[in-house]
Structures are given as C-alpha cells and as structure tokens.
Design a protein around this nucleic acid. Structure first.
Length: 273
DNA sequence: CTTGGGACCTGGCTGC
DNA sequence: TGCAGCCAGGTCCCAA
C-alpha cells in the first residue's frame, strides 16, 4: 500500500516530466475520485501550469498558481502511471499535459482521491511533521507521544502525530526499535523513543532508496515494482522466522489493524540485561 | 482535547 | 462446485 516511501518514489518519477507544463485535459472515467464535488470541482485546474510536484505525508500535490493545487491520495490500491496501462487496469482519472505527458490514476478499490484545493494551507497545517524533515526531532516525537495513551502502533498511524507512516512501516520501525506494538504511547521511556525516532527515519529512507514496497498493487509510474518489501523484517511475514533471533513472527490485531512483530525481540516488558 | 467505532471500497480468500 | 461472508487498511465522521 502506498505510504510515504511509495508516494515519494512516484513524486520523484513524475516531477521532471510535468513541471512547467499546463494541464490541458482532465478526464474522469470515475467521477467519484474527485469526491462529492465530482468532475466539476476539478475545472479550476484546467489550463493551469504545474509549478512543482510536492509530497506531504501520503499526499501527492501538483502545485498550481498561488497556493492552489491538485491533491492526490492513493489510499489502498491507487497507482499513478505514465506508462502503457496494464491489461485490466482500473483507470479512474487521466491527466493530460501540454507537453504530451499523460498520467493515469488507477485504483482497484476506488478509495483514492484526486481533488482541487483553492488553498493548500489547511491540508498542509492539519498533518503532523514530515518524519524526514529536520523539524521532526526525537524530542518532538516524545512530546507528541506523551499526550496519547493509545498503543504506540496506533499512534504511529495517526497522521496528526507524524505524517506518512502506514501499517507496513509502522511495523518495521517498531521492530527495529524493539518496541512491542501494544505498549501505550505515553509509557515508552525516553531512550526507547530516541531509538524509535531513528528507526522511523532509517526505515523510510531505506524504502525510498528501494523505490517503495510492492506488496499488492503498488507500482512505480514506469510500471516496475519497488524492492523495499525484500528488506522487510516483520511486515507481511507472519509465521516466518525473525531475521534477528529466528523466532516465529506473530500477527495480532491492534485497534482493528493487523500488526506483525517478533514476540522475542519486541517483548511487552523488557527483561533485565 | 482524546479515544473508539463504523463506513467506505472490492478482489481474494475461507468455509460450508 | 457455488456462493455468502469476511478480510485487507487509510481516512473521515460521529459519539462519548
């Protein structure tokens, strides 16, 4: 599923091809992708020039005039392709540009969205810090987690606490930090939060370098698959051996979401060393 | 303010 | 074999 590394991979892949070009056509085979406003809500973007391609959390943003833009969210099964469409692709929207470029938004499950924002400010302010930016410090993570009694896994998925982390990378970051997913966010000692902070950044950075993780429908804009899934320690590896200790990886439900972890490397209570 | 639950969505899987 | 029903999970909305 597209999380921060997948969206960042897409951003880097399309940016050089559409910055400076005008949007000459917006076709919506599935108007519901634009939300309640339907096709008409995207009309203001017609003819506009793409000034930059940005990412904020899991949102992909085509920055247009002033503070306006088109915001895409791929949710579960969305993909953005500038290649030949695979057979059976569920095309929900097609953007055509003045330089001949064409981007197809495919989305099997129709949860994805592509919407025009006259001002991007509310969206940008609503989300938590970017985990790879300098203002995301371990102290800022500590103060955010201090306010929450929910399981730390649920806290990492909360886009207001930190933006861009989804189920896969939350599991991976917690594994690297040796933290059990059900531990309350405000019960984690400072030294472990520092380790978690570093793990979050390491996991995301490495996944970007690998072009994202293709575990289901995710593909890069050129149609190729990412490679980050080959480096997973616990995510999507239920029943397989932990790469660190060999114990069997378990899958439990945390707040209605699946969580994969190593019961040996991520104990609820630390044993004295 | 925080927390929890349901809704959305559909291909793939499970079980009768 | 056929099919009902569950499951995956990111986000929004509502209630407590």
């Amino acid at each position: 599923m597209p999380e921060l590394p997948e969206v960042e991979t897409i951003r880097r892949a399309i940016e050089p091809h559409i910055v400076g070009a005008q949007i000459t056509d917006i076709s919506l085979p599935d108007p519901s992708i634009a939300g309640p406003g339907g096709s008409e809500s995207l009309q203001p973007a017609l003819g506009a020039t793409v000034r930059a391609v940005l990412r904020r959390g899991k949102h992909l943003i085509l920055l247009l005039a002033g503070n306006s833009g088109i915001v895409l969210h791929l949710r579960m099964t969305g993909a953005l392709l500038r290649c030949e469409l695979p057979a059976g692709a569920r095309v929900r929207a097609v953007l055509t540009f003045s330089n001949g470029e064409r981007l197809a938004f495919t989305d099997q499950r129709r949860l994805g969205r592509m919407q025009y924002y006259a001002s991007l400010k509310p969206l940008l302010l609503r989300l938590g810090p970017e985990p790879l930016d300098a203002d995301f410090t371990w102290e800022s993570l500590r103060s955010a987690l201090k306010r929450h009694s929910i399981p730390v896994k649920a806290a990492l998925l909360d886009q207001n606490i930190v933006a861009g982390i989804g189920n896969m990378y939350a599991d991976e970051a917690l594994f690297l930090a040796g933290i059990n997913p059900v531990v309350s966010a405000n019960q984690i000692p400072a030294n472990e939060i520092r380790t978690l902070w570093r793990s979050i950044r390491d996991v995301l950075q490495r996944a970007i370098e690998d072009g994202g993780a293709s575990v289901s429908t995710y593909a890069k804009p050129d149609g190729n698959r990412g490679a980050a899934q080959f480096s997973f320690n616990v995510a999507h590896r239920k029943g397989q051996p932990c790469p660190r200790c060999g114990a069997q990886i378990e899958r439990i439900m945390v707040r209605k979401r699946g969580a994969c972890y190593c019961p040996c490397c991520q104990p609820k209570r630390k044993v004295d060393a």
